[in-house]
Design a binder for these strands. Structure first.
Length: 436
RNA sequence: GGAGAGAUGGGUGAGUGGCUUAAACCAACAGUUUGCUAAACUGUCGUACUCGUAAGGGUACCGGGGGUUCGAAUCCCCCUCUCUCCGCCA
């Protein structure tokens, strides 16, 4: 019925009404993140939206007229009034041109608006601490003694060489820096940890998923890695696919374009995948050994939650992760990220940091976040509430856990003159108790 | 990789240019009837944008994108996916 096919507006329109009504709050939230020019960006969004709506209204009017005209022409032809039909056709040409122009204009506004919206990060939860850097994060909880090691204790990058369990130079040979090769007890320890983490997640009620580890562009936009982290992902240009930076992406995107029933909530999924990160520009001396890799293993937990229950779920996930660390007998602390340190898509994030005795520093081993409706909005992930209203859901995820730094901490903290004694909980999984 | 056939609402499935504002059936929901269940009957039954205080309008959407036409689910082109056959292969 239309003269010019209009591209389906894929933009994240659902949040526009919210932006309109909560302008001040949003600007405050963005400022907390030190997001530049928050006022100007929000103003621009509202202005473009107004333009878009004006254009939409004008276009709808033209299309409505064209529909009427087309029907008239149809009946004229049927009645055999050829000349009148020809005249009407000529007049329709004008409508056709107008609709063409208007839909081009509409698309322009939509594109600009989408561009703006995609580049606005999530709004921090009100309890997120003020602050610009990791220094300003709030320590919520600390567990375990920060042990002192014997003289001559080694950092993990020396331990792995000493016991010949992880080999960076072999990885360099076959791939490049940041792609280690795990050997013997090193490889088995990896496998043990993955199984342990998956079993624990299963016990906690998570459904195990084995997703693809390459994703398409749409999935990248769905969870917010695109366009924000474009340069962070390995891109397979031939097929327009990306290697996943985390299992969060495929597992959460399972629910893209889905409307759930309330009784299906919450969705709790877990999955093990390798993760790939280019880490462009972040390489340096302080990321030795297993501290930062291009490929690493991780078990992820994902929840899709009712909006009113998502913060309780965040706490539940944090407890799950803490229990893993406690079972592994690792000293850790939980920090709540400040506004400036918060990830692009997150409303609230806890980081779990394990203390490495040999490196004498805290290593981030897990990060658990509530994205509220931010991802759901892009994913079009919704549910029907008790009043049969369609509403956006909340998504959450956390690492439970990322392997390399856990391995580093286990090796460093458990070393002795006789070798590395593994935490008891892993013995059934490894089949050995000691690396020596 | 080659050849062919397909993709329609929650499901099945009709629809080869205007009588389709997408039929019919099933499922679902609400109501009526009913000792209970069932059946029967009646009604409702998509998503998004937009105008309106509201009631209620308008527009778009038949895998995705583009084109032809006054008018497209229907015709043409490109892409994706599914099925069948052939080839190759863990």
């Amino acid at each position: 019925m239309c003269f010019v096919a209009i591209t389906k507006f894929k933009a994240i329109m659902l949040q526009i009404a919210y932006i309109r009504e909560n302008k001040e709050q949003l600007i405050k939230g963005l400022n907390k993140r030190f997001y530049p020019n928050a006022d100007a960006v929000i103003e621009a969004v509202l202005e473009k939206d107004q333009q878009r709506r004006n254009t939409q209204a004008a276009l709808d009017e033209v299309l409505a007229a064209a529909n009427v005209a087309a029907r008239e022409i149809g009946s004229l032809i049927k009645e055999g009034k050829k000349e009148q039909a020809e005249n009407a056709k000529k007049q329709s040409a004008d409508l056709k041109n107008k609709s063409k122009d208007l839909s081009i204009e509409l698309r322009q506004w939509e594109t600009e608006l989408t561009q703006l919206l995609y580049n606005i990060p999530n709004i921090p939860h009100p309890t997120v601490p003020e602050g610009r850097t990791a220094e300003d994060n709030e320590v919520m909880y600390q567990y375990g003694k920060l042990l002192e090691l014997f003289p001559g204790a080694l950092p993990h990058w020396e331990l792995i060489e000493k016991y010949d369990i992880i080999d960076f130079s072999l990885g360099n040979k076959i791939t490049g820096a940041g792609f280690p090769v795990y050997k013997g007890k090193g490889a088995k320890l990896q496998r043990a940890l993955i199984n342990f983490f998956l079993d624990e997640a299963y016990q906690a009620g998570y459904l195990e998923i084995q997703p693809p580890i390459v994703i398409n562009e749409e999935s990248g936009y769905g969870t917010g890695q695109l366009p924000d982290k474009e340069g962070q992902m390995y891109h397979i240009t031939e097929e327009k696919l990306y290697l996943i930076p985390t299992a969060e992406v495929p597992i959460t995107n399972l629910y893209r374009d889905v409307i759930l029933r309330e009784d299906q909530l919450p969705i709790k999924n877990t999955g093990y995948t390798p993760c790939f990160r280019r880490e462009a520009g972040s390489w340096g001396a302080h990321v030795r050994g297993l501290n930062r890799l291009h490929q690493f293993d991780k078990v992820e937990i994902v929840q899709i939650q009712h909006p009113e229950k998502s913060y309780a779920a965040l706490e539940e996930m944090a407890v799950h992760i803490r229990q893993l660390l406690e079972k592994l007998e690792l000293p850790y602390r939980v920090v709540k990220l400040c506004g400036g340190d918060l990830g692009f898509t997150s409303a609230m994030t806890y980081d779990m940091e394990v203390y490495s005795a040999a490196q004498k520093k805290w290593l981030e081993v897990s990060s658990v976040s509530n994205f509220e409706t931010y991802q759901a909005n892009r994913l079009k992930l919704r549910f029907k509430d008790s009043k049969n209203q369609t509403r956006l859901l909340h998504t959450l995820n956390g690492s439970a856990l990322a392997l390399p730094r856990i391995v580093a901490a286990i090796l460093e903290n458990n070393q002795s003159q006789e070798g590395i004694i593994l935490p008891k909980v892993l013995w059934p999984y490894t089949g050995f108790e000691k690396i020596s």
